[in-house]
Design a binder for these strands. Structure first.
Length: 544
DNA sequence: CTAGGGTTAG
């Protein structure tokens, strides 16, 4: 009896443990493990592996390694699952080199890498920008006589989609049809998402049709893809209708479905709808993941409801969820916005304490916080430390520093960063332009402003950018941007003056708005810059 | 108990 009672208990525990780990609810997982030990049940290979997977999922790799040590102590050797999960964890952190090293280590031990190992690494390389290495591993698989399975192919399809190479993606799918691994549900969902992201909605719907004809029923992920696309197109009403009709027609909705619409509402300034949806979701007992919590916290922060945001943060901790980098970044951001830079840094330290690595976002937020709080020197120091430590920085990092320097009138330093940016092949954009332009205008150096513009335009693909922004502007202008009246009035005036060819006057308004610290619409900068270029051409013609 | 599709932040 005892023996019989014991065995199913262990399995039961493992199953529930797996459920909690999958959902990122580590606190509950920990409690359960404790409970298990108290009942005198020994963790087995499954138990250990479940824990490794749980820790890897939330990025606690050190803890995952500790579990592995514990395994060895208990005479349970790590198996192919353990290795693959750890490799996946490393890839998720962008630590591909270490992951590959682990694969080599496996080869030396008796656990040989399998197709899962390769797929994990290939996807890791694709996700972190080294597609050549990814393809090299595909070659290595072939050399070893390993067959590419549908997961491998789906990884490739996804990569082509991400690169916007939809023709090559379809070609890959055609190859799959001839192989032993025909396209599956994931393949179709990947393609549908690819077409949606590329703005080719007609093709996306054709693909949904094809998916159905191939006998695959639309699932939650297909629905969520469409929901996301509708939200992106600002068709919130349609999205909301889809959500309720899908639910009525028996489709399963999950926390991602709700999270998607929630984010859509917040982005579109419909905060009350968002909050309403949140309580609707809670009523349906759909448990939000860390990402959904991030959405609501971000939304509340945007509304200036910091207290409520913090209370949601505490709530997620109580629910046993593990905050991720985004969670910390969001709260660090709101502290910076409120001028509580010290509190922001405290949280940054907490982040490090929890072995979460501050990323580009964290850096950018802190830099902008320091700059707008009049601590430019500190910002510069942080910026330089970040660079000397070889950490990743991006366009936004440079733009933040350039803007900070420009606001203090340190134009020469700003110019220096603009060229440094180019050296790192990070392109300038309208943020860069507007900072420099604004500083030059404030200093009354109009001629240089124009000169700077035409110089930039020669190098960057400015025209394309401006076309893109104009397109975006058509969409956003359909919805009233009511949140900043100052910004709208100034923007309209500037655009109107530019249309009349009165660029000098436009610059004057620009200068004034700049001094007041008013942020203009993206498109205003573009219109103004184009105007300045036209004027410059006109002047140079006149001289000739 | 591991790999591939959908959600978040500057």
């Amino acid at each position: 009896m005892k023996e019989f009672g014991c065995f199913p208990d262990n399995v039961t525990y493992n199953t529930i443990l797996g459920f909690f780990c999958k959902k990122g609810r580590l606190k509950e997982a920990g409690n359960l493990l404790q409970d298990m030990k108290e009942k005198g049940l020994m963790p087995n290979r499954y138990t250990f592996n479940i824990l490794v997977s749980g820790y890897c999922k939330v990025g606690w790799l050190k803890e995952a390694r500790k579990v592995i040590d514990l395994m060895v102590q208990n005479d349970v050797l790590p198996d192919i699952w353990t290795y693959n999960m750890l490799i996946n964890g490393l890839c998720g952190e962008g630590r591909i080199e270490e992951a590959v090293k682990l694969k080599d280590e496996m080869e030396n031990s008796k656990v040989l890498p399998d197709v899962v190992t390769y797929n994990t690494l290939i996807d890791g390389y694709f996700k972190h920008g080294s597609s050549e290495e990814g393809f090299r591993l595909v070659e290595e698989m072939r050399e070893k006589g390993m067959e590419l399975n549908s997961v491998t192919n789906n990884i490739l399809v996804k990569w082509y989609c991400k690169e916007g190479k939809m023709d090559e993606a379809s070609e890959r799918v055609r190859m799959m049809e001839e192989s032993g691994f025909p396209p599956d549900k994931v393949t179709y969902n990947t393609l549908i998402n690819g077409y949606c992201k590329a703005g080719k909605l007609r093709e996306a719907f054709e693909m949904m049709d094809l998916m159905g004809r191939k006998g695959f029923k639309m699932d939650t992920i297909t629905l969520n893809t469409i929901l996301h696309t509708l939200c992106k197109e600002k068709k919130l009403k349609e999205a909301s209708e889809l959500l309720s009709s899908a639910s009525n027609r028996g489709y399963l909705l999950d926390e991602v479905s709700y999270g998607t619409l929630l984010a859509g509402y917040f982005k579109d300034g419909m905060a009350d709808k968002a909050l309403q949806l949140w309580s609707e979701m809670r009523k349906k007992e759909i448990i939000p993941s860390i990402i959904t919590y991030n959405t609501i916290i971000g939304g509340l922060c945007q509304l200036g409801k910091t207290e409520q945001a913090i209370s949601k943060f505490k709530e997620l901790l109580r629910n046993g969820l593990v905050p991720d980098a985004t969670t910390y970044n969001t709260i660090i951001h709101v502290y910076c916005k409120e001028g509580k830079v010290e509190k922001a840094f405290e949280l940054h330290n907490k982040m490090v304490e929890k072995s979460l690595k501050p990323d580009v976002f964290t850096c950018n937020i802190l830099l902008s916080g320091l700059c707008s709080d009049g601590m430019l020197e500190k910002a510069l120091k942080l910026f330089n430390t970040w660079i000397s430590e070889g950490k990743a920085i991006d366009q936004v990092t440079y733009n933040t520093m350039i803007s900070g320097l420009c606001k203090e009138g340190r134009l020469e330093d700003a110019f220096h960063l603009v060229s440094e940016m180019k050296e790192r092949s990070l392109g300038s954009d309208h943020y860069t332009y507007s900072s420099i332009l604004g500083a030059l205008a404030s200093a009354g150096r109009m001629n240089e402003a124009e000169e700077f513009m035409s110089k930039m335009v020669e190098v960057e693909n400015f025209r394309e950018q401006s076309l893109q922004l104009k397109e975006q502007n058509v969409k956003t202008s359909e919805i009233t941007e009511a949140y900043d009246p100052d910004s709208n009035v100034c923007s309209e005036q500037i655009i109107e003056l530019c249309n009349q060819g009165r660029y000098k006057d436009a610059m004057r308004i620009f200068e004034a708005s700049n001094q007041k610290g008013v942020t203009l619409n993206k498109s205003t900068y573009i219109v103004l810059m184009e105007g300045l270029i036209k004027r410059r051409k006109r002047l140079s013609k006149a001289v000739q």
